[in-house]
Design a protein around this nucleic acid. Sequence first.
DNA 1: TAATTGTTCTTCGTATACACTTTGTCCGGA
DNA 2: TCCGGACAAAGTGTATACGAAGAACAATTA
Lengths: 226, 226
Amino acid sequence: MAEDLRDKLGAQHLPLRDQVLAALRTAIIDGDYLPGERLTEDRLAEDFGVSRNPVREALRVAEAEGFVVILPRRGAVVASPSSGTITDMFAVRERLEALAARLAAERATAADVASLRALLDQGREATQRQDLARVAELNSTLHLRILQISGNPWLSSIAKSLYLHVQWVFRLGAAERAPHSWAEHIQLVDAIESGDGDRAERAALDHLDAASAAAYENAEGGYGTR
Amino acid sequence: MAEDLRDKLGAQHLPLRDQVLAALRTAIIDGDYLPGERLTEDRLAEDFGVSRNPVREALRVAEAEGFVVILPRRGAVVASPSSGTITDMFAVRERLEALAARLAAERATAADVASLRALLDQGREATQRQDLARVAELNSTLHLRILQISGNPWLSSIAKSLYLHVQWVFRLGAAERAPHSWAEHIQLVDAIESGDGDRAERAALDHLDAASAAAYENAEGGYGTR
DNA sequence: TAATTGTTCTTCGTATACACTTTGTCCGGA
DNA sequence: TCCGGACAAAGTGTATACGAAGAACAATTA
């Protein structure tokens, strides 16, 4: 009986560096660490209650992911997304999510479609309850689920990382728009279910156009021009 | 005069971890470390003549980039690209490079076009000299240059990383095909110069179709199905 | 004021230690 | 011969300490 427990614990073992990385990411996305803020190793180590080594490893990955900028011999600061990169991000995301929608349409099983429909149902429900946070969360889940259904690991991992950044930049306005985007989501899932790749791609593009327009508008007043 | 030197030296400073990462990447791409090979920290530290810390930091980034797989408490092994991921990689690359071509066409200055033409000239020359390695190198440079001209940092960084993986998987057959692809490159640069986004995108897609067909063929006999 | 110097903070890299897992080996028993 | 457990070896994960070097900032001096 003890072996079972140990096995599970062993498999479950998450290296501290990964926990730190996850915590760092969410702290940045949630705005606990603001763009431009300096992140000294000692401070992070203290914040997360670990030694400097795991922190350093997490920082390198966070840099590769674009969440922090590291200047040699000067340390890490939280990256500052500019409005220019917003346009750029959406340009890339448009292509990738369109591809994901097409692949998903071509490969989705009945079970896949059912899981998407279930998410739509939960979304409708949460919208009625005015639970915006939950709606936004389901929104994310839906997108990630479509990526997963696309069955392309490269696409999935790249788009996922991009999606995190989008959330970071637009964490302010995302919740308000979420309910509006739900109608577009239904279109998208319908298209995926139909198995028509062209139609799915079009639906994804329509959705992203609307999202980028709304997000951009929001960014004008929110994050500012720089 | 001294200030200039100091500034340059300061900026030039490459942390060991970055040097290790670069060396590790090229060692993997060049096949010095084969897929599935175990990479113990001590060994890498000795190979590169550094301590464990820089090696560990480089390994984490290499993992994020997909060059190695790290299993907790068991260490890192060189990733094994399967033929399935080849198709997936090209599917993503197609979209991204098409976007890059379009943006490049829309934004290229006269100087940009000139630099592309210069690369084409050098390529023609190297082809005549039968210097296949040089041709392959110029091939890479051309693609990266177009990404740079696109002016989209996200696109650039993602496509660059993808490009590295393509080189890794097809390092065997890339050199042979390089001369053939040159004609397609000329089409592409012509399209970029014309400023016609649609045309540039089409040229990029044509090029990638040919490249993926050739690469796939080569992989059948080379790397094998798994 | 402007240039220089000195101090302090921090990163970068090395080295060391140790707990804990995983893996491999060996050995006795069925 | 084959199996299962004890035991040893290898390697990772984490913490800690230390020195060198750079960067930032304050103090001092011309």
